[in-house]
Amino acid sequence: MSTNPDKLLVVNNLATTFNTSAGPLPAVGGVSFDLNKNETLGIVGESGSGKTVLARTVMGLQPRTNVTVTGSVLLNGHEMVGVSEDEKRKYWGTEVAMVFQDPMTSLNPVMRIGKQIDETLRVRLGMSKNDAKAKAIELLELVGIPSPSQRYSAFPGQLSGGMRQRVVIATALACSPKLLMADEPTTGLDVTIQAQILNLLEDLKEQFQMSVVLITHDLGVVATRTSRIIVMYAGRIVEMGTTREVFTNHRMPYTRALLESSPKVSNPSHTRLITIPGRPPNLLKLNQGCSFAPRCAYATDRCHQQRPELQIAEEPGHSFACWNPLPSKREAATR
C-alpha cells in the first residue's frame, strides 16, 4: 500500500506516548490513515483529543525527550518514525511544513519577520541574501500583507494576530512544501479574520499544488474545505470518511454529539446548544473499553469492556469504531 504513487502520506498504526512522572500517557494510540496528493484532509476533535500531538508526530516534530513513538509514517516515501532529527530535518520545510496554532507565540518575537522567512530560503535552498529577501517580500505579498517591503523589517509585535498568521503561512510556504499541516490555524484569531485565513489557505493550496491536513475543533471550518474528515477522540480515530458521509451519515454517537454541539445559523434563535455530558477522559487512566463510553447515551456493558476497532461502513472509505452505531441512512430508510 505504501508504494501507491498517489499517496503523499501513509500513516500506519502510529502511537505517541509521553513518559510522564505519573506514568505513560498515550496521547495518540494507534492511528492509521493516508492522504492523497492535492487532497485536503480534516482532523476534528475536542481539545485534548490528541490531534495536535498527532500532527506533530506525523511530521516528526514531537519533543526530543520523554516520548516514545511507534508505528510508521511514510511521507512521500520517506519514513519519519525512528529516524534521527538530522534525517527528518531534510524533509522539514521542503516536503512538509506546519502552520501553528497561535501566531502570538509561534513567531520569534525578537527577530524581524522578513529574516524569519528568508532564513529558511537561505539555509534550505541556498539562496543568496538578496534573492532570499526578494523572495520573502514576494511571499509576504502572496499571503496578502500590505506594503510587504516595509513589513519585511517589522517585528512580530508590530503586527496584528491575523497578519502574524499570514507571516507564519508565508514562512511555511517558503520552500514550497508538498504537504501543509495546519494545526488549528484560526483558533487564536478574531472571528472576522478566520474566514480570510482559511480562504487564503485554500487558494494557496491550489497555487502550490499541495496537500493540506487541516486540524480543528470547529466542524464549520472543515465542512466545505475538506474532501475527507477524521474524527478523533482520546487519541484514536473514531470515525473517518468523506466529508459528506461524516456530516450526513455518521455512525459514531460521538460524531453526532460533536455536530450537535456546534451552533448552526439555520437554527431558530434561542435554540439551546446540546452539550456532550461529562468531560474528555484522563489519558493516564483510560479504560479498556471504548473511551467515549462513559459519556455515551448508547453505551452498553460491551462498550465498557471491549474497545471497538474501526470497521468499514457501507460507503467506500467510511469507517467507524462503535459497537452500537447509529443507523445508517439506508438502514433508516428501510426501517
Binding site: R89, T105, S106, N108
Partner: peptide, 22 residues
C-alpha cells in the same frame, strides 16, 4: 520550550542555528 522554537525546528534549520539565532 517556546512554540517559536518548534516552528524554527519545523523549518528544517540546524540545531546549532536554532540555539544561536533563535
Amino acid at each position: 520550550q517556546e512554540e517559536f522554537i518548534t516552528m524554527a525546528r519545523s523549518k528544517g534549520i540546524s540545531q546549532r542555528r536554532i540555539m544561536w539565532r533563535h
